[in-house]
Design a protein around this nucleic acid. Sequence first.
DNA 1: CTAAAAATCACTCTAAAGTATGAGGCTTGT
DNA 2: ACAAGCCTCATACTTTAGAGTGATTTTTAG
Lengths: 158, 158
Amino acid sequence: MTIPTFFSKNKVILAYGTSLAVLLFLLRWLELRFIIFDHAFEIYIGAIAIIFTALGIWLTLKLTKPKIKTIVVEKEIYINNNVPFCLNEKEVAKLCLSKRELEVLQLMAEGFSNGEIADRLFVSLHTIKTHTSNLFEKMDVKRRTQAVEMAKRLSLIA
Amino acid sequence: MTIPTFFSKNKVILAYGTSLAVLLFLLRWLELRFIIFDHAFEIYIGAIAIIFTALGIWLTLKLTKPKIKTIVVEKEIYINNNVPFCLNEKEVAKLCLSKRELEVLQLMAEGFSNGEIADRLFVSLHTIKTHTSNLFEKMDVKRRTQAVEMAKRLSLIA
DNA sequence: CTAAAAATCACTCTAAAGTATGAGGCTTGT
DNA sequence: ACAAGCCTCATACTTTAGAGTGATTTTTAG
């Protein structure tokens, strides 16, 4: 998570530059002591050194690929019962539940038997049984009580 | 996980400065030795450039903390108990529900079959059936799904 | 201690739930 | 037009749930 800040980068570079300056002064001093050196040459070399060191630093910073670290953050989604019901369409889509199946699921959760649901939706008991079977298959549950529990937890129904 | 301290940085920089000085003296010496080369200056500059670029790269790799690119994957977790469950004891008393019956009711709401509840509570299926029958009688419902719906509505269970 | 309540187990029988499979009609998007 | 998905209905079969009745053993409160 800790990406090198601009400050830390600059700190290194500045420290390096300072050391170069010190070095140049040292050379200057040596030049004064032993009037051997042509100081323009040293300044030139120093400049080249600084520039290309900076280039190297810049290149490295630009071109190094960051290590990829994947963090799975569990985002808790609290379901507030006092807030008007809001269908969780994501889950509905994920489970591939059809409108009719949701209707059946809703009535199932309200405690109606398959027969009562059939009457309410004006279809046969067979149809409701098919719907419930498909629901259990899609939701990967074995009983209507499990389906209801899951449906409430996922806000598939009110 | 040793983060580079200021001291260690300086140590590197000082060592670097020293090596630079040595290098300059070496080059100077070489220059004095072989003044033969026509393009000695250009070669010299080129060498400096290459060396210091490499040095910059090396320094950067050594002194910067490794880049880490973090990918945060949000995994949604649905949680329903935003308000800590509080048993509605008034209703429990009103309905004359016993502890055991509440236990059975809880497991029933979690989607377990009578057989599974029997296993969980280490009693026979007959016992659970008796409990459920008594529950339905007391709660005045006809099916377990209705009982569960009512229990959740009245906060008899979590 | 004792009566009441609670918990346990058993048996029978019916109703409902659930499984498996097949099939026909109705939209819908390509 | 046609494939795909959904809704519908059907049959046959298995499993679970629930009703009704009765009984024994713990627990618990007076």
